[in-house]
């Protein structure tokens, strides 16, 4: 289920039939991602769903087995440097490079590669995130490394941020501060964000598009409003032995039963779904709007195995 409405006429990120395998394991399978320009696109998926692989392909750190990827219309495989200079990347891994360097030296090193490095903004980020410049990179904790990675990704004000679980390892205080910085960053310059996270709730105020990766497949992508409008929780009263209509079953995502009461999360316009349920013999007692996280998680299996 993919619905996107490109604003300003373009996509910051677009992939076409992107596939990647590691041996027999399929990490990505015919993924057609569409991230509109200036959107905050939240990518959701369980561990191993292919989120990090997708980010690596966009950075041309991994080569896809099939398909192509574009960032601002540039093919990531053939225009790697031109793509990467526009991308701020926070990798999933929390091990910073060049462990013998101090944070200051590493930032100086990175700055040399970005002609648009904004030193004043970098200083602001350093202060805001509490990065201690004199510390050796090798001696940083996971959270400190993450903070340093955030400075490295934001300091040249890239047009696209690829943030792979950026708040992982941060304490609650710094996590909130990092999100405030991200909001400030978005307000200050036109920026597209593709972010993967297991904490969707903390992006409730920022996200405007959501994509769900499941076993390497992009099973859903749509604007946030559409997601919350079309994925809803239905409380039904059903006869004994009732089964959901076949046409709803592929999207009859989660279901819990208690006697003749059934609660399930279904995808579709509410009126249409209600009519189908009624036609199948169920009485809709209540329809509830879901929080962003619940709506997105509805596409994921309750049993990860």
């Amino acid at each position: 289920m993919t619905h996107t409405d490109p604003r300003d006429g373009g996509y910051a990120v677009a992939t076409h039939g992107l596939s990647k395998r590691y041996g027999r394991e399929s990490a990505l399978e015919r993924v057609d991602l569409r991230v509109p320009e200036e959107a905050v696109y939240v990518l959701v998926g369980v561990n191993g769903a292919g989120k990090s692989t997708l980010f690596k392909v966009l950075m041309n750190l991994e080569r896809p087995d099939a398909g192509t990827a574009e960032v601002f219309g540039l093919d990531t495989g053939s225009a790697g440097p031109e793509v990467r200079v526009q991308v701020g990347y926070v990798p999933e891994r929390q091990d910073a490079p060049y462990r013998s360097m101090t944070c200051a030296r590493l930032l100086q090193h990175a700055a040399a590669f970005y002609p648009d490095w904004d030193h004043a903004y970098a200083d602001h980020l350093i202060r805001a995130l509490g990065v201690r410049l004199e510390r050796r990179v090798g001696g940083l904790s996971k959270g400190e490394t993450r903070r340093l990675q955030l400075v490295l990704a934001l300091a040249y004000r890239p047009a696209l941020l690829l943030l792979d679980e950026p708040t992982e390892g941060l304490d609650p205080v710094v996590r909130r501060r990092a999100l405030a910085l991200l909001a400030e960053h978005l307000a200050d310059a036109p920026t597209t964000v593709l972010i993967s996270t297991h904490h969707i709730d903390e992006l409730e105020s920022l996200a405007d598009h959501v994509g769900v990766l499941r076993d390497g497949r992009l099973v859903a992508q749509m604007p946030r409003e559409e997601l919350q409008r079309t994925v809803r929780s239905y409380w039904l009263e059903v006869p004994d032995g009732w089964e959901a209509p076949v046409e709803l079953q592929p999207t009859g995502l989660q279901r819990s039963s208690a006697g003749r009461d059934v609660r399930c999360t279904l995808v579709g316009e509410e009126r249409d779904v209600s009519q189908r349920l009624a036609a199948a013999g169920a009485r809709v007692r209540q329809v509830t709007k879901l929080a962003l996280e619940d709506a997105a998680l509805a596409f994921l299996p309750e049993d990860p195995s």
């Binding site: 601002f72 440097p81 031109e82 200079v85 526009q86 040399a112 590669f113 970005y114 002609p115 648009d116 903004y121 602001h124 805001a128 040249y156 004000r157 890239p158 047009a159 400030e184 307000a187 200050d188 310059a189 036109p190």
Partner: peptide
């Protein structure tokens, strides 16, 4: 932080 007016991106950034 004292951001200026919202920046615009008229040109692609340069590679080093």
């Amino acid at each position: 932080f004292q951001p200026a007016d919202r920046r615009t991106r008229s040109t692609r950034p340069r590679v080093p």
